[in-house]
């Protein structure tokens, strides 16, 4: 059971502290996003440390958009030294989505190479170029995969690629299209990937009909089927309906063979995570 803590557009640590305290009992670990949608926020590194101070286990997201291999390797060592134990490797949203459209992006390496590099640092105590590390980072390595992006036939192969690169766990893009997700899982099982990596299915609780439509139309690589939109449209209390849909999705996902957990992305709605987890009968969480 993982959830997300979005760092604030602020230097105020209290915002992260508040979310960490609010969520820590209702999840096993929490993704701390890295300037998500290319909007400048408190860094994932700093926010992850604040989570640690509050007793919430952070998953530090590290995109390839803003850091080259020097900075990525260096930050991984630093994060490990300060007690961060999980990292999520991803390419990151393109800068043209955010509030720094004129920025020059980095993309020195991609997310698959990032995984491979981190695995080498951890398991072989070597950095790129083969220099040795006196002590390697202690990190559980995460990847992302989007079963709803194209080409669909390649999406499982890409998962396999990330597994062989070093992923210990994989979080997926939000699942709304259950049929497509099941097809993807089935193909993943056919390749035995569910036994090599912990697959954690993503969900997003919908706050309103507007949010559902926005995700359907504006978020790249997202599929929101019409029956979900319909339910949100007909609901007298859209917020409760959004929570209900999310809980049903979690219950369904947990029945799919090979799904190892659920990742709740309650963007700007973090306070609802405890309720969702409780309603899905996933609370209390087992001790680590």
């Amino acid at each position: 059971m993982t959830a997300e803590i979005g760092p604030p557009k602020s230097a105020n640590p209290e915002i992260v502290r508040r979310y960490a305290r609010l969520l820590r009992e209702h999840g096993d670990a929490f993704n701390v996003t890295d300037n998500q949608t290319a909007i400048v926020r408190m860094s994932s590194f700093a926010s992850a440390l604040i989570c640690l101070q509050e007793g919430a286990e952070p998953i530090m997201q590290m995109t390839c958009r803003d850091r080259n291999r020097i900075a990525l390797q260096s930050d991984l060592l630093g994060a490990s030294a300060l007690g961060v134990r999980n990292v999520l490797c991803l390419s990151g949203d393109h800068q043209t989505f955010g509030n720094q459209r004129e920025a020059k992006n980095v993309y020195d390496i991609d997310s698959t190479q990032e995984l491979q590099m981190f695995k080498m640092m951890r398991d072989e105590r070597r950095i790129l170029g083969d220099d040795e590390l006196e002590e390697g980072p202690k990190m559980f390595l995460g990847a992302v995969e989007n079963p709803f992006a194209d080409p669909f036939e390649f999406r499982v192969a890409r998962l396999a690629k990330k597994v062989s690169a070093g992923a210990d766990f994989v979080q997926t893009q939000a699942v709304f299209d259950m049929e497509r997700f099941e097809r993807w899982m089935s193909a993943a099982r056919d390749r035995g990937l569910d036994r090599k990596v912990h697959i954690i299915a993503g969900v997003v609780p919908l706050k309103s009909l507007g949010a559902a439509n926005y995700m359907k139309k504006k978020v790249p690589g997202m599929i929101v089927p019409d029956h979900i939109i319909e339910r949100m449209r007909k609901a007298t209390d859209a917020k409760s309906e959004g929570i209900r849909i999310c809980v049903e999705q979690i219950e369904h996902l947990m029945t799919i063979k090979g799904v190892h957990g659920v990742h709740i992305m309650a963007v700007n709605w973090e306070e609802k995570v405890p309720e969702i987890v409780e309603k899905a009968n996933l609370h209390p969480r087992p001790p680590p």
């Binding site: 989505f97 997310s111 190479q113 989007n146």
Partner: peptide, 20 residues
């Protein structure tokens, strides 16, 4: 590729188009 990726499309590829 807008991100110069070397190991396949990112999660933003849909219907043959780039996320940007």
């Amino acid at each position: 590729c807008a991100k110069s990726l070397l190991n396949g499309p990112c999660g933003g590829s849909q219907n043959g188009k780039c996320e940007i």
